[in-house]
Design a protein around this nucleic acid. Structure first.
Lengths: 339, 339
DNA sequence: CCTGGCACTCGGCGCGGCGGAGTGCCAATC
DNA sequence: GATTGGCACTCCGCCGCGCCGAGTGCCAGG
């Protein structure tokens, strides 16, 4: 009994089940795939695969269904990545190229991915922490408020208002603005803290508290994981005809509304050698997502990713296609942001 | 046969149906409500109500169900607005008061409303057009770019970059900033165009093209309806236990993803005397939303609303409660924004 | 180690009968 | 003339039954 063929059988089971959404039996399996052996032989292999926990049967005397473990093995052995057709590529590129600003790029990307995969797409906004700063602006609003505007090289703009105990000295603001920008230009937010602290010393004693507060706001802004926004599209795809989910899709929708959780999940996911991360079923410990799988990868930035993009669907999804789509969109997205 | 009682019967039918989600018959109706008449009498009234198109029966010899027209009459005659309990009020207020900035306020509001109504909540971001300007900031970025930052009194911040053919004269920027702010302070964007045009004349001939371009950007920004963002929460509530929707919730989810359509719908809705707008079932011509009702109202601004907030659910919703909740959240939201 | 054969299991489906909730109508009553 | 009790009728939903087919596990033979 060759291990080789058993893997082949698992592969066939996964593919058939993904396509038909029904437990697959030994007879239909040999009919559809050129396995070169009889149903009886396949049955033996199936028994072994079940013993090892890769497949299971919903009821006695029913066909087999892959388990999470089975999908995992399948995905790990998945060597060939489906190449996209070249019209498909062109469509992606053109669609994204028409975007007018960062919001538009992200919006288009997430919709596109949802459309391609027919699943739920999730895109994290380019992270502030790993982006480089283009400019820092201070605007007095009234006489006890200061608006801090942070502009990154990915085109993202973030702002915070700062309430002050006492009026801001008119003259300090332009100077602070100039010095801050000098200290900050082109640096990534994660690399900042030290230069800023030194800068404080250049100001007269009296102004230092104010300077410290402004610096504090900038630091807080970058520290706040809350500010990591994500956008989502394709929720409607969860409710597709086939009864994809056991009970309702409610728990899934609930989980998806918790952006914080989703964000953590997305960033936690470890990428494999090919740069794509896959979480299958119960590998997602998040409540409500244990019946779903997530395919994600990073985008933007050379070498180190600036944010992540992913697709979420039922564990029984077309992994090969999803991986291809996620990679493709991530690649074009990176290109657009860099250009 | 008093018209008075017929209305009472309709009322009872709507209330029972909303609660039980099942067609309601004459017997159970008299048992649950103190109508003071016999089932037979109610049956006569029902026949009349059906004749007039306010109710219908799913199958012969089944109970009655309100039609869209029935709900409409019910809502129009709905005089008493359910007052919220005072713990409920306090909870709303505290929850919203803890918000740290505009994004947070909007986010909290939409979640809160979804939670209260157990439906889908939608909040439109404070509109630029109807907000008053607090401050206008010009920031040179590089020597051929100008960043225009627009800050409104609702706390919203919008920015645009402006590419220039020739370098900006260093000195013009501060002057332009000062003059613009003088011309603009406290005015609503819709009221602007004329004062800005006059202002151009105050600059030396050479600088006028630049001034005109900046003004142009400000005007464009306010003209772009695209910039009207909305946020949504509570999609999971659509998938509640009871089989609320005929087929699936898919068409509804799809419609909700089309923010542009949703936005148009929200702004089109005409408010009644009490300031709340209700669209019932097929009154929503939007595809996918013909089985849902929407309750919406404006918020922010004195007299004239600055943006809208609403709740969407199955036609069979608790209108009285939903209206109360929408009004309450809108009121507190307005208060927060004003303070 | 593979294969064909065989007995067994079990879920899904269609059918028929039943009960209950509800209606519509009619004649009697106030 | 509105209201009411009575009565016959309708129809949906539910339950139990039996069949069929797909699928399995095992065994003996190649």
């Amino acid at each position: 009994m060759s291990d080789e063929r058993r893997l082949e059988v698992l592969r066939a089971i996964v593919e058939d089940y993904v396509q038909t959404r029904e437990p697959v039996g030994s007879r239909t399996l040999v009919e559809r795939h050129r396995l070169g052996v009889s149903p009886a032989t396949v049955r033996n292999d199936m028994a072994a695969l079940e013993e090892a926990g890769f497949i299971a049967q919903p009821h006695t005397s029913a066909g087999r269904v892959p388990t999470d473990k089975g999908y995992r093995l399948f995905v790990d052995r998945l060597s060939a990545i489906k190449p996209l057709s070249s019209p498909e590529r062109r469509a992606i590129q053109h669609f994204l190229e028409d975007a007018v600003d960062l919001d538009d790029v992200v919006d288009r990307s997430v919709r596109l991915l949802a459309q391609l995969t027919q699943q739920v797409a999730v895109v994290q906004y380019p992270s502030l922490r790993r982006s480089a700063l283009r400019h820092l602006e201070l605007v007095p609003v009234g006489d006890r408020r200061l608006l801090v505007v942070i502009i990154t090289d990915t085109g993202r703009v973030e702002q915070r208002t700062l309430d002050l105990q006492e009026p801001v000295p008119e003259l300090v603001v332009p100077e602070l603005r100039a010095r801050l920008n000098a200290a900050v230009a082109g640096r990534r937010l994660v690399d900042l803290p030290e230069p800023l602290e030194q800068m404080t010393l250049a100001f007269p004693e009296a102004d230092r508290p104010l300077v410290r507060r402004v610096i504090r706001v900038v630091e807080d802004t970058l520290a706040e994981a809350t500010e990591e926004r994500i956008v989502m599209a394709g929720a409607a795809n969860l409710a597709r005809s086939g009864t994809d989910f056991p009970g309702t899709i409610r728990p899934v929708l609930e989980a998806l509304e918790e952006q914080v959780v989703l964000l953590r999940l997305l960033t936690e996911m470890a990428e494999d050698s090919a740069g794509v991360a896959v979480r299958i079923g119960h590998e997602n410990t998040v409540e409500g997502l244990t019946e779903t799988s997530i395919v994600a990868t990073g985008y933007g930035g050379d070498g180190e990713a600036v944010a992540r993009i992913g697709s979420l669907g039922p564990t029984r999804m077309d992994y090969a296609a999803t991986i291809a789509h996620v990679r493709a969109v991530a690649r074009y997205l990176s290109r657009i942001l860099a250009g």
